[in-house]
């Protein structure tokens, strides 16, 4: 049964990489059910991430947000800060797609905070880039400029010419 769970996860990932997002979600839901059956919270967390990602490409941003929130909740329980940061980044981008810029900013700020704690300059740069764009969408050009400057500074430091 445990191996069946892993096989479902692998099938979900393969369908996802083939661009078959509906099929991917069906397999990841099976994977999720088996992870719950075994109380395997790490596998449950992975399934939520994979389901969130697949729903983005199905255009179901609202569903993605709910799965990413489950990922965030489990990453906190599992005390995995890198995954927590990634979940916040995903939620920030998903709320941008949902045009809820205030909520997008909340999650991007949380992502920024964790990236700073982890000394992850690439993550920090991405958070600043995202925050700059979100503040532009809200018409807050002063804050947008602050984050754009910070993004430029970090990009120069890490040698990201793009």
């Amino acid at each position: 049964r445990a191996a069946q769970g892993r096989a479902y996860g692998n099938l979900g990932n393969t369908q996802y990489l083939l661009g078959n997002f509906s099929e991917a979600t069906a397999f990841h839901k099976e994977r999720l059910a088996i992870a719950k059956e075994f109380g395997d919270r790490a596998a449950e967390r992975r399934a939520y991430s994979n389901l969130g990602n697949a729903h983005i490409f199905l255009g179901r941003f609202d569903v993605s947000a709910e799965y990413y929130k489950k990922t965030l909740q489990l990453s906190r329980q599992l005390k995995d800060q890198a995954v927590e940061a990634q979940a916040c980044y995903s939620l920030g981008n998903t709320y941008t797609l949902l045009q809820d810029f205030e909520r997008a900013i909340e999650y991007h700020l949380k992502h920024l905070q964790i990236a700073q704690e982890l000394r992850d300059r690439v993550g920090e740069g991405r958070a600043c880039w995202s925050l700059g764009n979100a503040y532009v969408s809200l018409g807050n050009h002063e804050q947008a400029l602050n984050f754009a400057k910070k993004h430029l500074e970090i990009s120069q430091e890490i040698g990201d010419c793009n």
């Binding site: 990932n13 991430s49 990602n53 995202s130 764009n133 969408s137």
Partner: peptide, 26 residues
């Protein structure tokens, strides 16, 4: 107009490009 605007959010576009190749492996 809003959806055209959204397509111009370059940081989201970049995230989605990376996301397409991102899977949580078993």
């Amino acid at each position: 107009v809003q959806s055209v605007h959204l397509l111009q959010v370059d940081s989201v576009q970049r995230w989605m490009r990376d996301l397409k190749l991102m899977t949580e492996c078993e």
